[in-house]
């Protein structure tokens, strides 16, 4: 025997499917922050590798043929100084800023070495971080407090992810 569902039942099922799919999907558009975006366009030849704190943007900015790490305060659009962080003999690879913009994790290439380091902006200090077992870092992600670091590391021909607890 074949059971044929009533038209009413089919309608109910169809409405339920449509309501479920609509409720799980949103199509609101993000709004560009034009003042910051225009300022970024004007300030360098290009920007890449963005990292966001709550009110901070870290990027790699290309200016005069050289790439530098820049930190921008999103409340006023101004770049803040990072004394001691950028070096003429180093190429930055990956950068990550914490929520409050006071710590920056960085991977950079200097000569034959790929370095992983933590910059404390308030103290203007750089701390070199060891990777154990040894590996070559490629991508870095700093958590909001700046106390935990996730790093993509090339090791024995594969990509690992290391988690490092950082000192205060």
């Amino acid at each position: 025997m074949i059971l044929i569902p009533s038209i009413g039942l089919l309608k109910t099922v169809l409405i339920a499917v449509v309501v479920t799919s609509l409720s799980s999907c949103s199509r609101g558009n993000p709004i560009p922050i034009k003042s910051i975006n225009n300022s970024l366009l004007r300030s360098a030849n290009s920007h890449r590798n963005p990292s966001l704190g709550n009110e901070w943007l870290g990027t790699l900015a290309l200016r005069d043929g050289r790439e530098r790490i820049e930190l921008i305060n999103l409340l006023n659009g101004r770049q803040v100084p990072l004394p001691g962080l950028n070096r003429p003999d180093a190429q930055p690879i990956s950068v990550s800023v914490n929520a409050y913009g006071d710590r920056i994790a960085l991977i950079r290439q200097r000569g034959e070495r790929t370095e992983l380091l933590l910059y404390r902006r308030n103290l203007e200090t750089i701390q070199f971080l060891d990777i154990t077992p040894q590996g070559i870092p490629r991508h870095v992600s700093l958590n909001g407090t700046g106390r935990v670091l996730a790093i993509q590391v090339s090791r024995d021909g594969r990509w690992d992810v290391d988690i490092i607890q950082l000192p205060r």
Partner: peptide, 14 residues
């Protein structure tokens, strides 16, 4: 974490 994992992103609270 081993075995071809890329582009790690850690949450704000770690």
């Amino acid at each position: 974490l081993t075995g071809n994992q890329q582009e790690p992103s850690i949450s704000g609270n770690g």
